[in-house]
Computed example of a mutant assay.
Amino acid sequence: MTHRIVFLDHDTLGPEVAMRRPAIDHDWTAYGLTTADQVVERARGAGILIVNKVPLREAALERLPDLRFVAVAATGTDNVDLAACRRRGIPVSNVQAYAVHTVPEHAFALILALRRSLFAYRASVAAGEWQRSGQFTLLSHPIRDLHGSTLGIIGEGALGRATGDLGRAFGMAVLYAAHKGRTDMGPLYTPFDEVLERADVISLHCPLTPATRNLLGEAEFARMTRRPLIINTARGGLIEEEALVRALEGGRIAGAAIDAVIPEPPPADHPFMRLAERPDFILTPHVGWASREARQAVADQVTACIEGFAAGTPRNLVA
Rank of each mutant, 00 (worst) to 15 (best):
Q96Y: 14
A84L: 12
P65R: 01
P91G: 01
A73Q: 04
H106T: 04
Y98K: 08
V95Y: 03
H106M: 06
G76F: 12
T102C: 15
N79S: 02
A99E: 07
A74W: 05
I90Y: 00
D78K: 10
C85A: 12
N94Y: 04
F69E: 01
A99D: 08
T102Y: 10
A109D: 10
Y98H: 11
C85Q: 08
V103F: 11
I111V: 15
Q96V: 15
R86I: 05
D78W: 14
V70R: 02
V80G: 04
N79C: 08
V80S: 00
D78P: 01
S93L: 11
P65G: 04
Q96H: 04
L67Q: 00
S93V: 14
H101M: 01
L82W: 10
V103A: 03
T77A: 09
P65H: 04
A97C: 14
A99V: 01
T102H: 08
D66Y: 03
D78E: 14
A83M: 07
A107L: 02
A83S: 13
T75D: 10
T102G: 05
A109H: 15
V100F: 07
Q96R: 15
I90G: 00
R68D: 02
V100L: 06
R86G: 12
V100N: 08
R88L: 07
L67D: 00
Q96A: 13
A109Y: 14
R68K: 11
E105S: 14
V95G: 03
D78A: 11
V100I: 11
S93I: 09
A73E: 09
N79E: 05
I90F: 01
H101Q: 11
G89W: 05
V103R: 07
F108D: 11
H101T: 09
P104H: 14
V95R: 01
H101K: 10
A84V: 08
P65M: 05
A83P: 02
V103H: 01
T75N: 14
V72M: 06
R68F: 06
A83N: 10
N94K: 07
F69G: 01
R88D: 13
A74Y: 11
N94T: 02
D78R: 15
V92E: 01
H101F: 02
A107F: 09
A73M: 12
V80Y: 03
H106I: 10
L82M: 02
D81N: 12
F69Q: 00
G76T: 06
V103L: 08
A99I: 03
C85G: 08
I90S: 00
A74F: 14
C85S: 11
L82D: 04
A109G: 15
A74K: 08
C85W: 08
N79F: 11
T75H: 12
V100A: 12
I90K: 00
A97I: 11
H106Y: 06
V72A: 09
G76L: 11
E105L: 14
V80I: 09
R86Y: 07
